[in-house]
């Protein structure tokens, strides 16, 4: 499992990059969902989001999930190409699989990578 140390993590398995404002779902989340076949981004550029707002809906062959904003702020960019290539979320969740960028984002309740790894371990048994 990959958990880049420069990122912050939520209990609902989103990541947030305080440097760039980018957010998405974690490697752990994509592996739990398995093969992702559909992504719908629920927010547009320029919209304000608060922590916990649904920002995307994801469906895999066996599950579906809502993705929530890990930080509050103005949405400065959305990854429009994602809906055509949902499998990107499986192959590169922290890179090409980013979902939105939140400008001036102030993160909600988040963990660092070590805490998050522990949190995930506790759930795999």
């Amino acid at each position: 499992m990959n958990t880049p140390s420069n990122l912050k993590y939520t209990k609902s398995d989103e990541w947030f990059d305080p440097a760039s404002g980018a957010a998405g779902i974690t490697d752990f989340a994509q592996s739990q969902l398995s093969d992702i076949v559909f992504v719908e981004l629920l927010v547009d550029e320029g919209e304000d989001v608060t922590v916990g707002n649904a920002i995307a809906s994801v469906e895999s062959v066996k599950a579906s999930a809502e993705i929530y904003a890990p930080a509050a702020g103005k949405v400065s960019a959305v990854n429009k190409g994602l809906s055509d290539k949902p499998e990107t979320l499986n192959s590169d969740p922290f890179g090409e699989g980013w979902m939105i960028k939140i400008e001036g984002g102030s993160a909600g309740e988040v963990m660092d990578s070590t805490e998050y790894e522990k949190y995930c371990e506790g759930r795999t048994h």
């Binding site: 076949v37 559909f38 469906e59 895999s60 062959v61 066996k62 599950a63 579906s64 809502e66």
Partner: peptide
């Protein structure tokens, strides 16, 4: 196919 749209997975959503 696309069964995760359905009620047994999405439940109240």
């Amino acid at each position: 196919t696309l069964t995760s749209r359905e009620q047994h997975i999405k439940r109240e959503r």
